[in-house]
Nucleic acid binder design. Structure first.
Length: 477
RNA sequence: GGCGGCAUAGCCAAGUGGUAAGGCAGAGGUCUGCAAAACCUUUAUCCCCCAGUUCGAAUCUGGGUGCCGCCUCCA
């Protein structure tokens, strides 16, 4: 097994990755709250975990990957009010939207994808256990986690309780009535009371809905177990979300929630974080109008997952241009090669075992083993493209094409050549051009040429029909 | 105010002690009827500034400056 190193937010260091149980790796990543269209920030997060899962599987691990969907939340309820529809409808619409976008971006399906509304009974049981264990208390229809009961609170964010209290003071002033129900401003809601008629569920503590952090703790315990190998999420979730997950789960189970905590960096626009609240986001749907899924993925993977990623149209265009070279190389530069490629992939696969490609594989693995350094891994892909383009030896070309496709695939890049896919407007123009050339041949009484065109088109399933005075019309037969 | 992170060429971006990957853009060239593609050459004596440690630092230490994130919903 490879000597994979992973940066762990808990220790703030790179650590050698060793799974709890042999080759099995249990991963949980925080998914979206479905109240609006997904944007590039969601894409970065999803692509990051997709890349991690793909590489771990490529390295020989059996990965169990779980990603949740938060489908009940204040933001969803507020959105529903704005739109005048039920929260369930909002959640359903944007859940489908998320799935559509993830599929478009070639992101693999998680092995489990629990939704918060499927976990009410488990969440209620979780709260009940926390109360019985003295880690939570009910207060006027709400239930709060007692932060003072969990000594390690703040270990992920690495902030002392006293310092956090200072920070929480302003909030306490602005939300006086809320704070009066809590023992400490740092205590967070496990359950929020709701008025009758609002969306909610009945519990021993009253009618209401779950706090946001609770679902992740509950789902992890239910789907994967008390301690998982890797927990992933956006950097902005470190505090309070992930910190609170740790508090809930570890207070109850007395075991570490996750051994490795991984966090992806934010996407910035004009040096500011892309976020819903700032309104400066680019939706995945919008981006896909202009850029291919591979372009978006390569744009994200050319930066290390923990670094901030600056979004500009220029850099996305630059990636698009660079990707062209990889695609051309991966699909054979000439038509000849493309045809041979299909029939000789077997040859390529056997040639792939040769020594020179071992070095390429080692370079790729070395990059990825270093905390998933995809920027370096991408450089390996470009190196392969150079090799392909500078040799005329067919066997070497094929084996390197095989390697390029293989490693690109580990990064989730398809390198699919869509350069010859024509839209219908373009097809119309081309037919118009062909028929114009044919018309000029007929005008010169060059019937050999005009008949050749008509017969060839006929063989392609296109009927050409000459008219008396309006040139020729065509249709698919 | 507290905590954390970042500063590398025109742009994007790797590199955490051994003498600056890769991509884009630019320049020159080869090939070509002309293009395109592809290929070759070229583009940071230097990695925000100052001081220090070291035989040796973009990489370590200290001090500045600037930017960002979290502390409130957020991938």
């Amino acid at each position: 097994m490879s000597p994979l190193q992973i940066h762990n937010t808990l220790s703030n260091k790179k650590e050698l990755f060793t799974p709890i149980n042999g080759k099995t790796v249990k991963i949980y990543a925080c998914g979206p709250t479905v109240y609006d269209l997904s944007h590039l920030g969601h894409a970065r997060s999803a692509i990051t975990w997709d890349m991690v899962v793909r590489y771990l599987r490529f390295s020989g691990y059996d990965v169990i990957f779980t990603r949740n969907i938060t489908d009940i939340d204040d933001k969803i309820i507020n959105r529903a009010k704005e739109l005048g529809i039920r929260p369930e409808q909002v959640a359903r619409e944007y859940t489908f939207g998320y799935w559509r976008d993830m599929k478009a971006l070639n992101i693999g399906l998680p092995d489990f994808e629990p939704r918060a509304t499927e976990y009410l009974s488990q969440m209620i049981a979780f709260i009940d256990q926390l109360i019985k264990a003295g880690h939570a208390y009910a207060s006027e229809g709400d239930v709060y986690f007692d932060v003072s009961s969990f000594k390690e609170y703040g270990k992920l964010k690495k902030q002392r309780l006293e310092d956090m209290l200072v920070g929480a003071r302003d909030l306490a002033v602005s939300q006086q009535d809320l704070q009066e129900r809590k023992k400490s401003p740092l205590d967070f809601a496990l359950w929020k009371g709701a008025a009758a008629g609002e969306t909610g569920w009945q519990t021993p503590w009253g009618f209401g809905r779950p706090g946001w952090h609770l679902e992740c703790s509950t789902m992890i315990a239910d789907v994967l177990g008390d301690t998982i190998d890797i927990h992933g999420g956006g950097e902005d979730l470190v505090f309070p979300h992930n910190e609170n997950e740790i508090a809930q789960s570890e207070a109850l189970h007395k075991k570490p929630l996750a051994r490795y905590w991984m966090h992806n960096g934010m996407v910035n626009i004009d040096a500011e974080k892309m976020s819903k609240s700032l309104g400066n986001f680019k939706t995945i749907q919008d981006l896909l109008q202009t850029y291919s899924p591979d372009t978006i993925r390569l744009f994200i993977l050319q930066t290390h997952y923990r670094s901030p990623l600056e979004f500009t149209a220029e850099s996305l265009q630059a990636v698009k241009n660079g990707l062209q070279r990889l695609i051309r190389a991966a699909n054979g530069v000439s038509q000849d090669d493309a045809e041979k490629l299909a029939s000789q992939m077997q040859v390529a696969e056997s040639a792939f075992t040769k020594e020179e490609l071992r070095k390429v594989g080692a370079a790729f693995a070395e990059a990825m083993d270093n905390d998933f350094n995809t920027a370096e891994a991408v450089a390996v892909l470009y190196g392969l493209a150079d090799q392909i383009n500078t040799t005329a030896e067919i066997e070497k070309r094929l084996s390197h094409i095989y390697a390029l496709q293989l490693y690109a695939g580990v990064l989730g890049l398809t390198l699919e050549d869509t350069s010859q896919n024509l839209d219908s407007a373009t097809s119309q123009e081309i037919m118009s051009l062909v028929l114009q050339i044919r018309q000029e041949a007929r005008a010169k009484k060059d019937y050999a040429t005009s008949d050749l065109i008509r017969n060839k088109l006929g063989a392609l399933g296109i009927n050409v029909m000459d008219t008396a005075g309006n040139g020729a019309a065509w249709e698919r037969s």
